[in-house]
């Protein structure tokens, strides 16, 4: 098992490092880094799918156009079903989140790629944006009656303060779990893939066993990438529903 250096020298976390693209060691605020590159690629993918794909405006859609239309109606229906009909005005917002998370996840599966959504900084900003939007929207639309979200009317009176405390805590845990779920799932998958790839380098003649494992893992990771994007989006819709209709 041991190679020349003595012991396995797998560094599963190196792939998540933020590096400047054009030389230099320091990462300032405006440095062009691999984060910039892969986010730009996500933007390019979005443009290719949603703008170039739908360019024909054909009545009978071409292949790329029907993929764009399927994505559109999938998210549209999700917003309408989960958050209600009046949430349709937030559809571009939800669509932005979905497409960004989706393409970041999927593009991150390319070998040697960088996955922006595996960084807690990125997902925390996404989740906080949702959290702040939802909270502000709730207070703007419903005023102080938005606080009834935490006051469970159907519970016995004695239990209500306790429940209110629990509801309050769970409300503030939302952005934490919302962001860490995505970052953790992405990070875990990539780290595991890297560890298995390291095994392949260390095993010598039996290298094909970990490679088979990595292949299977990649299929699972593709599924996870899509499902995490779906879950992130649908939770955004659920939180939006709480802001629009808090009395449920």
């Amino acid at each position: 098992m041991a190679d020349a250096n003595g012991g396995l020298n797998i560094r599963p976390m190196d792939q998540f490092e933020v590096r400047p693209l054009f030389g230099g060691d320091t990462v300032g605020m405006f440095t062009i880094t691999n984060v910039t590159l892969w986010m730009a690629l996500a933007v390019v993918s979005v443009v290719l799918l949603m703008v170039v794909g739908s360019r024909g405006r054909a009545l009978v859609p071409t292949r790329s156009q029907s993929v764009a239309e399927l994505t559109y109606s999938f998210i549209y229906k999700m917003v309408e079903d989960v958050s209600g009909k009046d949430a349709v005005r937030f559809f571009p917002y939800v669509m932005t989140i979905f497409l960004f998370v989706f393409f970041s996840n999927v593009l991150g599966l390319i070998p040697f790629a960088f996955t922006p959504t595996s960084h807690i900084a990125v997902t925390a900003v996404l989740a906080l944006a949702v959290f702040i939007t939802v909270t502000v929207l709730g207070f703007v639309l419903h005023g102080t009656s938005f606080l009834k979200l935490f006051w469970v009317d159907s519970a016995p009176l004695a239990l209500r303060p306790v429940l209110a405390l629990i509801e309050l805590i769970s409300y503030f845990v939302r952005p934490v779990s919302h962001s860490i779920r995505l970052a953790g799932a992405m990070m875990a998958g990539h780290a595991v893939a890297k560890v298995f790839a390291g095994f392949a380098a260390a095993l010598g003649a039996a290298f094909f066993i970990p490679i088979l494992a990595v292949t299977a893992l990649y299929a699972l990771e593709l599924l996870v990438a899509v499902i995490q994007a779906y879950v992130f989006t649908i939770l955004t819709c659920v939180y939006l529903k709480d802001a629009l209709h808090p009395h449920h």
Partner: peptide, 20 residues
């Protein structure tokens, strides 16, 4: 199915916390 995925997501989040 939407509730299935939401439920799975909530259950999975706690596992990811321990991984973290």
């Amino acid at each position: 199915t939407a509730f299935l995925f939401i439920g799975i997501a909530f259950a999975e989040a706690l596992g990811i916390f321990s991984f973290l």
